[in-house]
Amino acid sequence: MDILLQLIANGVLLGGVFALISIGLTLIFGIVRVVNFAHGELLMVGLYATWIMATQFGLHPYVAALPLAVAFFFLGALMQRAIIQPLMNADPHIQIFATVGVGTALANAALMIFSADLRSVDLPWARQATDLFGLASVSRGNLVAFAVSFVATGALIAFLNRTHLGRAIRAVAQNRYAAPLMGIDVNRIYAITFGIGAGCVGLAAAVLAPLYPAFPTVGSFFVLTAFVVVVLGGMGSLEGAVVGALIIGLVESLAGYYVAPDLKEVVYFVIFLGILIVRPAGLFGVRGNE
């Protein structure tokens, strides 16, 4: 098989993984206008939760996805109510510090409870390779993650555009001041949005658990990539996050092979910085968001 086709297939599927992690982040930023620096740590918690459910209760990770997403919805809503809500009118610095604090606390709590060992969910099926039209060979788990990310993004976009609640969510994003005058409970919308964003993370954790082990700093491993994806696509744009994720997946896959394995992150960080500087609103972003 052609090495280039294989690399592209790997990159696209990796993009699916990144998209799954990024949509919650971009949704929360777009609506609540808070950059959640604890996003990666939520994923870390989700990976541990899936691992516990799989090893202690023998639950299949894909079966765990739904209850985990629901649990994370409430976790996210709770986090918004307890920590973000009191700071909604505070300086952006303070909001950054608050979420950084949550992330630091979660990562270190995990270190205390689980130590630094890797905890993997054993699901050989997901790691098995499958042939993709004779062009490339990819793991089934990656295909599942890819499919889930597309379905989840599509469902979110439809929800935001077609339902009353979705429209109210967008209204809050566009004009925080006018929304309550329409009878929209803005704080409730924020909690719901944070919940949905966290729910996406819960879903992602369950789908990714067979592919990636849980360890205390796994969050920062993923979250920087998620930031790159979200900024590239345009903060707040769901479509942008998917496109950004595919681009970064491809870059990582190709740069890892053609440049140097340990410099692949440098390559996409350079792209990230370039985008921030040349077009801070991202590919699909609305100007003024930066």
């Binding site: 009353h164 429209r167 001041y177 006018a178 005058l181 329409m182 009878g183 609305v286």
Partner: peptide
């Protein structure tokens, strides 16, 4: 209901969607 100072529409929605939001309750 209040019509606020400075219009305060939802700028990236259509006029129809703005009106629909007026009847949110």
């Amino acid at each position: 209901t209040m019509v606020p100072e400075g219009r305060q529409l939802f700028p990236f929605m259509t006029v129809r969607e703005n009106l629909m939001l007026g009847a949110y309750k």
